[in-house]
Amino acid sequence: MKRLFARYADVMDSVSVFIGHGCSVLFFACIAVSALEVVMRYGFDSPTVWSTELAMTLCASAWVLAVGYVTQRHRHISITMIETLVSPRVWHVMRLLQMVIAAGAVIVLTMALWDPMLKVLKRTEHSGTALNSIQPTYLKILLVAGCVLYILQLAANIIRWCQRTEGEIAGGH
């Protein structure tokens, strides 16, 4: 059973890293779209109706989907001063507590997002902008997907914590 859990953690880590690296392309695409808008607006006095909405969607997608990568790398924002005030053993236990609380909070968030996601799957919502894209529908589905990735990666991190295979995470905040 221990090997099965370790294998799950390895696979989940690989999935999170793959998605995280893939999300970096979305940030570059956002930069390109924003630069194009600047050139079109100020260089040709012909702004686009789609660039702002697309840039927001690209950044939101990258941010939401990269949560597994950030969690796998232990790079969430945290208050590291506490780590210097407590013993390594206490800090180790506090990390588990943090992961369990985070998993509980994200499960509650997923439950809260579930019904709105189901509603937009039945009836597509549009942004109401000049582009009138399906951004609200897309983002509601994406938020649930991001929550699931986060929960799955937290489970992998908890497995690594229990098996004491986390590796070096000092300075990873």
Rank of each mutant, 00 (worst) to 15 (best):
I77Q: 09
R89N: 09
L97Y: 05
T71V: 10
G68M: 02
A105Y: 07
P88G: 06
L96M: 14
V90R: 08
G104R: 07
A102L: 04
L85N: 06
E83L: 07
H74E: 14
I79Y: 08
H74A: 13
A103D: 00
A102C: 03
R75H: 08
Y69N: 06
M94V: 04
M99N: 10
S78Q: 08
I107K: 00
M81K: 08
H74V: 12
R75Y: 02
T80N: 13
Q98Y: 10
H74Q: 13
R75A: 12
R73A: 14
L96H: 05
M94I: 09
I101V: 12
Q98T: 04
R95V: 05
T110P: 02
R73Q: 14
T80A: 13
M94C: 13
L96D: 05
V93H: 10
V67K: 04
V93A: 13
L96R: 11
V90G: 01
Q98V: 02
Q98G: 15
I82M: 13
V100K: 02
L97G: 14
V67D: 00
E83N: 12
S87A: 08
L85P: 00
R95M: 12
V70T: 15
I79L: 11
I77P: 02
L96P: 04
V100W: 00
A105C: 14
T110Y: 04
L96I: 08
S78P: 02
Q98W: 07
G68I: 01
L97D: 04
L96S: 10
S87Q: 04
T84G: 07
A102E: 00
V93F: 05
L109C: 12
